[in-house]
């Protein structure tokens, strides 16, 4: 049952200028996000997968309007927020939150956990001191911490607990959308699964929408409803999670799936090993950005950027070959 649309991106681009020389002239552009169109439904988890420099984090930050898109339109709950001023964005801010990869770097080492969690409540709500304290206690318990953690400092917590604090802070203002930027990548495997379970249960309870950025296709398979594959700032493939793992269409998706080491010893692998490196996002190849490493590249791939077409219901691909 399709839920209503929460956010919509139309041909969103985010370019960063590269400055060089004595006069700091603009010498070129890094196309971090290059023409992404996407719809995000209420209560879904969209997995965004790609290798370093593919623009997945920039896309997440742009979605929250932490970055202003260079071009294109960005709608949140039906309102065009692509060029709103900081002041006009204020009412939207508490509905969109973010969870970062390194929970320690996102906490002030000298600030008590309780105070860190209270800060958004001071800025965005009318709650008085007592009510805020009660709310923070509630948040701590909700993410599996204890009330007496209120007065502790970040260094007293383990990595998994710190990430729980990051999650509590994102939840403080009852958001509808949370961008999770590699939230479990820095955690040990045995702890990682705990945090994933927490994210799942919070989503159910609060009806959250996740934009889940990850490079781990195992994690994505078990958490996400749909998956978006990106490469050098462009979208390569978007499909419901089952479909993507069963019928990957794009050669890059196939290669990514086959490159993951599986915990099955002696498995006869027909691994597609991509040759070469990721090109620099400052100098992306012409045509399809993947053609330099694609085992099936044709002449047309070097010249013309493939269009974003639908190959099955809800399954979109940008590829000339398929």
């Amino acid at each position: 049952m399709p839920e209503k649309v929460l956010a919509k991106l139309e041909n969103v681009k985010k370019y960063y200028p590269v400055r060089r020389g004595l006069l700091n002239r603009v010498a070129g552009q890094v196309k971090a996000v290059d023409g992404v169109s996407l719809v995000l439904h209420n209560r879904e988890t969209l997995g965004v997968v790609g290798e370093s420099g593919c623009g997945k984090s920039t896309l997440g930050r742009t979605l929250l309007r932490l970055e202003k898109p260079t071009e294109g339109r960005l709608y949140f709950n039906g309102t065009d927020i692509s060029s709103l001023s900081a002041r006009a964005l204020q009412p939207f801010r508490n509905k969109m939150q973010m969870i970062f990869q390194d929970p320690f770097a996102s906490l002030n080492p000298r600030q008590r956990i309780g105070d860190a969690l209270e800060e958004p409540l001071v800025i965005h709500t009318q709650l008085n001191r007592e009510e805020r304290r009660e709310r923070v206690m509630g948040l701590l318990e909700e993410v599996g911490l204890r009330r007496d953690h209120y007065d502790r400092l970040p260094h007293e917590f383990s990595g998994g607990q710190r990430q729980r604090i990051g999650i509590a802070r994102a939840l403080a203002l009852n958001p509808s959308l949370i961008v999770c930027d590699e939230p479990v990548s820095a955690l040990d495997v045995s702890v990682q699964a705990q945090v994933l379970k927490l994210l799942q249960s919070l989503q159910e309870k609060h009806g959250l929408t996740y934009f889940f950025i990850s490079h781990d296709l195992g994690v994505v398979r078990h958490l996400c409803d749909r998956v978006l594959i990106m490469y050098l700032g462009q979208t390569m493939e978007l499909a419901p999670v089952k479909e993507l793992y069963k019928n990957p269409v794009h050669p890059y998706t196939e290669a990514l799936l086959s490159a993951i080491p599986r915990p099955v010893p002696g498995r006869k692998r027909e691994r597609i090993i991509l040759s070469g490196d990721l090109p620099s996002p400052a100098k992306p190849p012409k045509g399809c950005p993947f053609h330099t490493r694609c085992p099936e590249a044709m002449t047309v791939c070097k010249e013309i950027r493939p269009e974003w077409k639908e190959v099955a219901p809800g399954h979109q691909v940008a590829c000339h070959v398929r």
């Binding site: 495997v189 045995s190 781990d216 195992g218 398979r221 078990h222 793992y245 993951i260 915990p263």
Partner: peptide
């Protein structure tokens, strides 16, 4: 605790 890439029935 390692999420499987190949098994969709796997539960964390």
């Amino acid at each position: 605790s390692m999420p499987s890439v190949d098994d969709e029935t796997y539960a964390l």
